[in-house]
Nucleic acid binder design. Sequence first.
DNA 1: CACATTGTTGCAAACAGTCGCAATAACCTA
DNA 2: TAGGTTATTGCGACTGTTTGCAACAATGTG
Lengths: 144, 144
Amino acid sequence: MSHDLDAIAAQLRRNGFRMTPQRQLILDAICELGGHVTPEEVVQRVQAITPALNRATVYRALNFLVEQRIITVTLLPDGKFVYELAEGEPHHHLVCRACGASVQLPHAALSEFYRLMEKQYDFRVDMTHISFFGLCKNCREGSA
Amino acid sequence: MSHDLDAIAAQLRRNGFRMTPQRQLILDAICELGGHVTPEEVVQRVQAITPALNRATVYRALNFLVEQRIITVTLLPDGKFVYELAEGEPHHHLVCRACGASVQLPHAALSEFYRLMEKQYDFRVDMTHISFFGLCKNCREGSA
DNA sequence: CACATTGTTGCAAACAGTCGCAATAACCTA
DNA sequence: TAGGTTATTGCGACTGTTTGCAACAATGTG
Ligand SMILES: [Mn+2]
Ligand SMILES: [Mn+2]
Ligand SMILES: [Zn+2]
Ligand SMILES: [Zn+2]
């Protein structure tokens, strides 16, 4: 999808924050780069347009936009964070550690697990955008 | 538990690797520090005894010992890797993002999810030592 | 418009983690 | 024991990420 800058700006102002040229550029970058982008990809992209835009600003903006629920973050099992626009239903991923392919899971695929943890351990698991590593079918056929 | 250096040394040699003073110190540190230690905690500990022992050596040894299945690693949902001795049954964790408390899950708590992913998506999720963030009961009562 | 307030940025320094490479130490064989 | 082989370490440089702080920019008030 695309992002509605006016709506986002309004939402931010409503909460006492501001829409800035830097944040606009960063949102554009996330949108144009498509799903699951790394901070460094965003830095490259925005600095191609505005070289003075600082690396630290990108990292801070990404965190900020996650807190405002305008984008979401997922932690890939190799320890890297990737970001994407928050839209529609929450989802999760199965990421193949051999070929990198990423399958999207509907939220429902994990809701049973969520309920079990709440019932048995009185623990509410954070269930926005989780990623699991593993091996896809193709990559299993190569080895054992 | 404690670790059996002789048995570990033998296992390494059997596979063409070596037990070194550095690796011994690092294993001792993991053992003495108890569960879930960060690389930096290990660095502090071993350098208190042998200041010359290099940071890079610690990181390399931790990766190596994971590959040899002498220790295990889990990725906490804040993006940090933590290590512990591999012993007994595989397990997982529910980690409270507010108070840091960590509940241990038996492997069986996730095996249903594992089977579902294999059946529905033909995908084998890596299921050694997974950690989820969330909120424990205590920390939920403070906020919403 | 002047001014105060406060959210935001850029900068620079610190920190965590990775990597290539040359020196070293362990092991094997003669 | 001497010499060759190779696993391992320390070093230094580099990348990615965080943080404090001072400068800046947007907003609101009089
Ligand atoms: Mn996603
Ligand atoms: Mn554990
Ligand atoms: Zn694959
Ligand atoms: Zn808690």
